[in-house]
Amino acid sequence: MNRNPERRDLFPGALEIMILQSLRLKPMHGYALVRHIRQVSDNLLEVEEGSLYPALQRMLREGLLEAEAGTSAKGRPTRIYRLTEAGRRHLESEVLSFEKMFDGITRVLAVAKT
């Protein structure tokens, strides 16, 4: 599995945010999610398949997502994941708390530099 050693694994919770945010743009199937995150992050972020599918199931169970039968671009059957209203609210609150955290981290790092 030719992974880029520069790329770091995501910390807990980050993967969920990434998935929710991606699905907010449009409903997608699993592989499309991986590709989307990789492209948008300019290859900096790599989603592990081993984490993705359990995470998707977790969010389905918590009602943040819905899955529906769909077809891929090649016409093969697949499952399309879609954000629910609860998922949208969860994303917003998570983003808010993340922003606060990043803000804090940035400030601490800035002080440390000077």
């Binding site: 699993g30 592989y31 499309a32």
Partner: peptide, 19 residues
Amino acid sequence: RRYDDIDISIREHIEERAD
């Protein structure tokens, strides 16, 4: 049904990567 979903999702994932 969920188990089938997982199975289908993953199969499609691999197929698409192969494509």
